[in-house]
Design a protein around this nucleic acid. Structure first.
Length: 183
DNA sequence: GCAATGATTTACT
DNA sequence: GTAAATCATTGCC
């Protein structure tokens, strides 16, 4: 779960049709393919979850409820299906573009505080499934915003009622005091 | 081949 | 607070 905390403060960049947008990660959730029922790759390797079993550093896009794309970062190595879901970012670059995509006229929390709308704002969709996060379309940068433990809150995850005994695992990490985390 | 459902968001009662 | 929108993937027939 160390990687989940490391990702807080990192910056996601996307270059969609030549338009660059970026956001600082302020909320993540960890998923473990071997022990975690909430993970899509739990005890089953399918076509959809295939990317999680590969080398880390790639994007796993998941279309949820037919309308929202969730953006995950594959974190482990070949054969180990671990990933981190990015739930919220703080807009940094291309804010105008994000507002347009979200059909809003001014900057507010609703722009990127949520796993589905975050992908919307950054222009991510399932066509980015398996995208290399060191590539020139979608990539991560270390912006020296590393947080220490006392600045991070660990809480149970959200929207995984079906995961039974794993519902209460404190694998959701948020930056304390950030205005950009989801509700 | 077909029916069931979800790592959500938004709008409306 | 509750419900609808909406579709790729999954699992079973």
């Amino acid at each position: 779960m160390e990687i989940s905390k490391d990702l807080l403060g990192k910056v996601i960049y996307t270059n969609i049709d030549g338009v660059v947008t970026a956001g600082k990660i302020v909320e993540t959730e960890a998923y473990n393919g071997r022990y975690d029922k909430a993970c899509h790759a739990y005890q089953k390797r399918t076509k959809r979850t295939e990317i999680m079993y590969g080398q880390g550093g790639h994007a796993y896009m998941y279309l949820c409820y037919g309308m929202y794309n969730l953006f995950n970062i594959v974190t482990n190595t070949e054969g180990l299906a671990d990933a981190v879901l990015v739930r919220a970012v703080e807009p940094l670059e291309g804010i105008e573009t994000m507002l347009q995509r979200r059909k809003l006229d001014k900057l507010q929390k609703r722009v990127s505080a949520g796993p589905g709308i975050l992908s919307l704002a950054l222009g991510l969709d399932k066509s980015h499934y398996g995208e290399d996060l060191l590539g020139n379309k979608v990539w991560l940068e270390d912006a020296n915003f590393n947080y220490i433990d006392s600045e991070i809150s660990a809480t149970p995850r959200i929207g995984i009622d079906y995961a039974e005994e794993h519902i209460d695992l404190p694998w959701r990490f948020v930056v304390k005091g950030s205005e950009w985390v989801s509700k």
